[in-house]
Nucleic acid binder design. Structure first.
Lengths: 225, 225
DNA sequence: GTAAAATGTGACTTGGTAGTCATATGACCA
DNA sequence: TGGTCATATGACTACCAAGTCACATTTTAC
């Protein structure tokens, strides 16, 4: 965690440092990110940097907090369009709203996802907490969906979690990559084409999960070769 | 491409260099990979390295060739268990056989996929060719599957390509990450548990694609900016 | 055996990195 | 005013990187 000194900074200056860090990680990933450049681009001295942060990892972890905070704020005042949504409807709303958020913070999202996905940190010790939260929330959703009959009771819980977790990452990454060139990313994400893409991707997932049959040969039958 | 000098090397020595490079990229990714370390770990001199390769990118590109070559050899003598396989059966066989290959070359696969999936997309043009090949092959498969009635004719071609491409990456990554700790990766991949995981994941995808409904608002409607 | 060509070598240059620290600045308080 | 304390600074150390090059060694050709 950044040191107190950092939080004592006037908002403006703090933002300057955060933005420089965001750009750095988005452009270079974690390993190749340079503290020297962050320092230069935020017009603070090297010494100040080390009065604010422990090291490169510390500043990156702060970006995770910033992202979480901004996302929370973004979602706070938005509610699913209807109360009667089943799990798939809810998931669809989550993803679309999430993409809206992403399009308003593309560089921050890119920085974080590039580092997490790329350097393998996503699967490392360090971020397992974050992952666990997402996964647990999903699992809870799925469990109650199965209870309500919204999802086939034969669907394996872990499987559904993996599928939904994966699916949301994939959709988000694909759209951000595709839209990287666009001038107005917010508008692009709201375009009919992208919305249709999301709908179609989710339809595949939804039908796959709704209609999945019980494994033909019941449990494990295992090894071939 | 590596220089002729490299290919003149005795196989043993060449293999030593390749292995050192594989380890390096697998452990550090592209940006953080160090030529100095590759040189040290393969017991060649710095000067020799530059007589073999142009630079870091050159040596990495060679790994791509090595991977392609080994995969080709691996698949050469294996044939789908039955001639009557439809696209999904064929895809399932491809993925299972691919996973078998991966488990016999885990470090090489990790090195390449780490760089390609994570940092690769940031090198623009360079790696898009490789991806294009996979995508084109998939698209051809899908097209003929739709002609044969194996896949719903309403399924959008691009959508199916994206889904199948994504799916295979996800399955492969999940298994490799999960199996990273296992002592005997080959055995792990052949285990009933993993085989069932693959079957279940593919079932979801398969049902999703088979049963997908025609898009509500018919075809592409959406201009973007 | 000798000359020429190919290959191997590692010290060296140049430049970037993370992190430290003595010193300077400025804010706040008595 | 003078003193104290938080903050700012950038030169500096120690290190590691990529890439070069004059020279050593080995292989090949004659």
């Amino acid at each position: 965690m950044p040191k107190q000194t950092f939080f004592n900074l006037p908002n403006e200056k703090r933002q300057l440092v955060v933005n420089a860090a965001i750009d750095e990680f988005a452009n270079y990933g974690f390993e190749a990110a340079s503290i020297n450049r962050i320092v230069a681009n935020s017009s603070i001295s090297k010494g100040s940097f080390y009065q604010y942060f422990e090291d490169k990892l510390d500043v990156f972890k702060h970006l995770l907090d910033v992202l979480a905070e901004e996302k929370t704020v973004f979602f706070r005042d938005r509610h699913p369009p209807s109360q009667g949504l089943d799990i798939f409807g809810y998931f669809r709303w989550m993803i679309k709203t999430g993409m809206e958020f992403n399009s308003t913070n593309p560089v921050l999202v890119k920085a974080v996802s590039r580092v997490l996905l790329s350097e393998g940190m996503y699967y490392g010790q360090l971020f397992s907490d974050i992952r666990k939260k997402t996964i647990d929330a999903l699992r809870e959703m799925i469990r109650s969906a199965k209870n309500n009959g919204e999802m086939d009771a034969n669907v394996d819980e872990d499987l559904a979690v993996t599928v939904m977790d994966t699916w949301s990452n994939v959709i988000s990454n694909n759209i951000l990559n595709e839209g990287a060139q666009k001038k107005d990313l917010v508008k692009y994400v709201k375009s009919a084409k992208v919305q249709k893409y999301i709908d179609d991707m989710l339809s595949v997932m939804e039908h796959g999960l709704r209609n999945v049959k019980p494994s033909l040969e019941d449990g494990q039958k295992g090894s071939e070769q």
